[in-house]
Design a protein around this nucleic acid. Structure first.
Lengths: 187, 187
DNA sequence: CATGTTTCCTAATTGAATTAGGATATAACC
DNA sequence: GGTTATATCCTAATTCAATTAGGAAACATG
């Protein structure tokens, strides 16, 4: 019987798809293996185990997020950069609900690579907000505010916390503009 | 050998403690059973299974939250009510990090009781914001804004997303006042 | 104290994660 | 092409959590 041609990258990609489409609770090594027509022990040649795989998913998610945010703010700054970043943030979470959840949890066990990718994302936000010339300490608070609003909105939206009625796009647009105004007039 | 005197309520309480103190990933029926000096099958006399228990935890958490929010805003209104609600929100999440996570996820499988408890919490927020006399549609947006900021801040704080440096209490106080101001001047 | 019910038990099943060790496909080299 | 080495995948077996079946003894009730 020929080999399946597995490798770490394809396993991570497939795992990401399963997690986002079917929910992280359905992500098992057996489930992934069956996707490739192999048995679960075969995966251990390519990933150390389920925890290692989850860490790889998290890293992959963080890097993808950093890339998308980076692209979103290329060539723009100030209010428009906040808008682009916000929309990009929301899109990422819509597209990768389960992976996004992984990226939010910080742990003392996180690898250097994961820390670096997280840091990169944070740097993008800082860079965007730095153009507003706030004092350094206020920059920290403003960044926390921006992150809180974005994370809060999209995770509540994702988890069905906003109910059916009333347009969520409208809420988001409104809140996004409120944020822009707040940061512009930060005191 | 005498009986352990188990009942649904004490099991839920113990489960809540284990989840919040040790993390939801350590919450197993065996772990709970060992806490009472019994074996895991014994628990099935009192809860239908682990999923049922989680649902009970969620309901219990929602009711506790509703109660604490209710108490926090008794006798106050307007800006001060927003402040009390915000602080109460943050305290709850600090005290019950794992249970809070359960309360955030909405599901089509949620029982009527869970929906009712969720609705009660939402009603408290609506009541607080209603005193600002916004048009009904804006009330929806403003509520979503308030919930986003609170949920966003406390979950990022809880997950270690804000790093070590800079005082988080100060960030929270600042952001809370910004929220108050935004709602007061909602346009 | 006799009886019925409830509570807790042991034993057994299922499914996921994991490890050990083996077979063979593929690669590397002569 | 043939030989050898390595990598990839396998089966078999272990552990642990959840669950179910069925039994025994505690407790409540009269």
């Amino acid at each position: 019987m020929p080999r399946a041609g597995l490798n770490t990258e394809t396993i991570v990609k497939t795992a990401m798809r399963i997690a986002d489409e079917e929910g992280i609770e359905h992500l098992t090594l057996s489930r992934i293996a069956s996707e490739f027509g192999v048995k679960s022990p075969s995966l251990y040649e390519h990933v150390k185990g389920i925890e290692d795989l989850i860490a790889l998913l998290k890293l992959s998610g963080l890097r993808l997020m950093a890339q998308q945010f980076q692209r979103a703010v290329i060539g723009v700054s100030g209010d428009e950069a906040i808008r682009r970043l916000s929309d990009s943030f929301r899109s990422f979470v819509m597209e990768h609900p389960s992976i996004y959840n992984l990226t939010v949890e910080n742990s003392v066990n996180d690898s250097e690579e994961i820390r670096a990718a997280s840091g990169e994302i944070l740097d993008i936000i800082y860079t965007v907000l730095r153009s507003y010339k706030l004092p350094e300490q206020m920059l920290v608070h403003a960044t926390r505010y921006l992150r809180s609003v974005l994370h809060g909105f999209v995770s509540l939206e994702k988890s069905g916390g906003f109910g059916m009625k009333e347009d969520k796009d409208e809420s988001f647009a409104l809140i996004r503009e409120l944020m822009v105004s707040n940061i512009k007039n930060w005191h």
